[in-house]
Nucleic acid binder design. Structure first.
Length: 287
DNA sequence: CTGCACGCCTGCCCGC
DNA sequence: TGCGGGCAGGCGTGCA
């Protein structure tokens, strides 16, 4: 699902609901998702105050004032929704004043501001962890990840040299989180179309100039998608339940057999499978 | 070390 | 209407 723009949109949506708030109650409704949750995760989060929300690649990091950080990954189908408590009588606690939880609602946070945050993930490829904030840099999921594409260390010389080593299709190389963080299948397809580079081209066979040209394109595609609130295909939603709308701007993703949108190009979009994943591209203008 | 197939899950869509 | 097959935004594991 969610690639960097979707995760960033979720993070931004969570900020007003979580930053500075006390976690009044935390409930895990199953033992884990992709991996088991840490022992006592819910108890260890309860009563802590949220200092700030960060994002690293496709991971949301929730720094708490008890020295711990919670990590959330949305996998393919994860979504996080925010609800406000409804009407209630004087004797009821506010926990009772929400709509009933639904299938696949796996983790629920309640803050001290009549707010409920629900992590729902039908396919359970998502993950959640809790660890000491000081050890975040050594976390096995975070440590191997390459530079943030919207950050200062991601530049033309870096990407050109990183790709020059790789004897794999550029499509696969850009999906490799060690080369650049946060890209997934949709945005790699879109980036390669804008760059007029075939997804089949070997990464090491790109000139330094063409490899470097990917840097501003990656930045542009991701920035535009964040601006649009991400892309909603099926599962993904913003934290208020709204769809993202960058899917309306796709040039190639899920457009098999439709006309290429490159100016003056008469090609049609093709779908091929690389490393078990669909690549959409125009064989006429992507070389 | 690199590159790649596989498996993890549920749900939806399509063809028969 | 039902059923089987294929497909889906990710990524760690294990193999050659």
């Amino acid at each position: 699902m969610p690639e960097l723009p979707e995760v960033e949109t979720v993070r931004k949506g969570l900020i007003p609901a979580l930053e500075g708030r006390l976690l009044a109650r935390v409930e895990t409704r199953r033992e884990g998702l992709r991996w088991p949750f840490p022992q006592n995760m819910a108890d260890d989060m309860t009563g802590a105050r949220v200092l700030r929300l960060r994002r690293r690649s496709k991971y949301i990091l929730i720094d708490l004032d008890n020295g711990m950080t919670a990590l959330i990954h949305l996998g393919m189908s994860g979504r996080i929704l925010i609800d406000k408590a409804g009407e209630r009588d004087d004797t009821a606690t506010y926990y009772d004043a929400f709509t009933p939880l639904e299938k696949h609602d796996h983790v629920v946070l309640w803050t001290d501001q009549d707010t409920r945050i629900v992590f729902n993930d039908a396919r359970r490829f998502g993950a959640m962890d809790l660890f000491e904030t000081a050890t975040a840099g050594d976390h096995p999921l975070l440590k191997p990840i390459g530079p943030e594409p919207l950050g200062n260390t991601f530049d033309e010389p870096y990407l050109a040299s990183a790709l020059a080593m790789r004897n794999t299709p550029i499509k696969s190389a850009l999906l490799d989180q060690k080369i650049v963080a946060g890209l997934g299948n949709i945005y790699v397809c879109e980036v390669l179309w804008r760059a007029h580079i075939s997804p089949k081209r070997k990464a090491k066979n790109l000139s330094a100039k063409r490899a470097g040209s990917l840097v501003p394109i990656i930045r542009d595609v991701l920035s535009e998608a964040i601006e649009a609130g991400g892309s909603s295909l099926k599962d993904y939603r913003q934290t208020d339940g709204e769809l993202g709308y960058f899917q309306h701007n796709f040039a190639v993703y899920d457009r098999e057999n439709q006309p290429c949108r490159t100016a003056d190009c008469t090609g049609n979009i093709a779908r091929i499978v690389q490393s078990g994943r669909s690549s959409f591209y125009c064989a006429k203008c992507q070389r």
